[in-house]
Amino acid sequence: MSDDSREMFRQLAVYSHVGMSFVFSIVIGFGIGWYLDTKVFDGRTAPYLTFIFLAFGIAAGFKNLWDIIRDISKKE
C-alpha cells in the first residue's frame, strides 16, 4: 500500500466510527438509566435517572466527537 491509500484507510476508519459511536453513546446512556430505574430501584426513581443518564449519554457522544476533532486538528 502506498502512503496515500494508507492514510485514506486510516481516515476511513476514524470517520466511519464517528456516527456509530455517537449513537451508541446515547443508547448506552439511556440503557443504563433505564436499567437503574426499572430493575435496581424498582421504579421508585422513574423517570428521573433515565433522563439524567440520557443526558450523560448525549454528553459522552459529544465528548467523543470533541476528542476526534481535537486529534484531527493536532495532526494538521
Binding site: 459511536s21 453513546s25 448506552i28 459522552a60 465528548k63
Partner: peptide, 20 residues
C-alpha cells in the same frame, strides 16, 4: 462527571466495533 462520560463512551466503543 468525566468518569461517567468515559465509561459510557468506552462501552459505546465495544458496541460500535462489533456491530459495524
Amino acid at each position: 462527571f468525566m468518569f461517567v462520560l468515559e465509561v459510557i463512551s468506552n462501552f459505546a466503543r465495544l458496541l460500535s466495533l462489533s456491530m459495524r
